[in-house]
């Protein structure tokens, strides 16, 4: 008996999730219609969290979906793919997501700081996967494209005029005061 011919497929990622230590959804991006309603999504997240929050290892097959996970302190990261996906691609997506978040949060890797920087997190997630297609796997490229101010990197000035440089400086000052 033959295996059915596998259609070459770039839609690798079905979902990316970030949850807190109680299993509450912080970020959830679903890229296809595996779960059509919000209720189904929440149900899946609940069983996923129950299976993975205490287990060791980074991979599980749940409801026919390959789920990769990784956690730190009170943040849980998930990348979900189909059952026949190349799992090693998903690992790389997960690593990229994790490292990019780490670059934003710096030393204080915890939920509170995460929520304070939620705007940047949204941009990061958007830069890693688009509609299920992997956009970028290099975390420094991701943070750079999301134009996020990380500690070790100044935003590039490029061919800006003096006025805009001044404007940018003003912004920077405002931000540092706000922090």
């Amino acid at each position: 008996m033959d295996f059915p011919a596998m259609e070459p497929n770039m839609y690798t990622v079905k979902a990316m999730l970030i949850m807190d230590s109680d299993g509450n959804r912080l970020i959830a991006k679903y890229y296809d219609d595996t779960f059509t309603t919000s209720k189904e999504q929440k149900g899946f997240e609940k069983s996923l969290f129950a299976k993975t929050s205490k287990a060791s290892g980074e991979i599980i097959l749940l409801d026919g979906l390959t789920c990769l996970y990784k956690s730190n302190v009170d943040l849980f990261f998930y990348v979900i793919g189909g059952s026949s996906v190349n799992e090693l691609m998903l690992v790389q997506v997960l690593t990229c997501l994790y490292e990019s978040v780490q670059k934003v949060l710096g030393k204080s890797f915890e939920k509170k700081v995460f929520m304070d920087n939620l705007d940047s997190i949204f941009l990061i997630v958007d830069e890693i996967v688009d509609n299920g297609i992997i956009v970028e796997l290099d975390s420094s490229a991701v943070t750079q494209r999301a134009a996020i101010r990380t500690d070790d990197q100044q935003s590039p000035m490029g061919e800006q005029t003096v006025a805009s440089v001044l404007l940018a400086a003003k912004e920077q000052l405002k931000w540092s005061l706000l922090k």
């Binding site: 008996m1 295996f3 059915p4 026919g64 979906l65 390959t66 189909g82 059952s83 026949s84």
Partner: peptide, 18 residues
Amino acid sequence: EAREERAQTGAGGGGAKD
């Protein structure tokens, strides 16, 4: 056997059609 295939590959699998 087809079912076995499906159990392995999860939801995918047109084996049963064969």
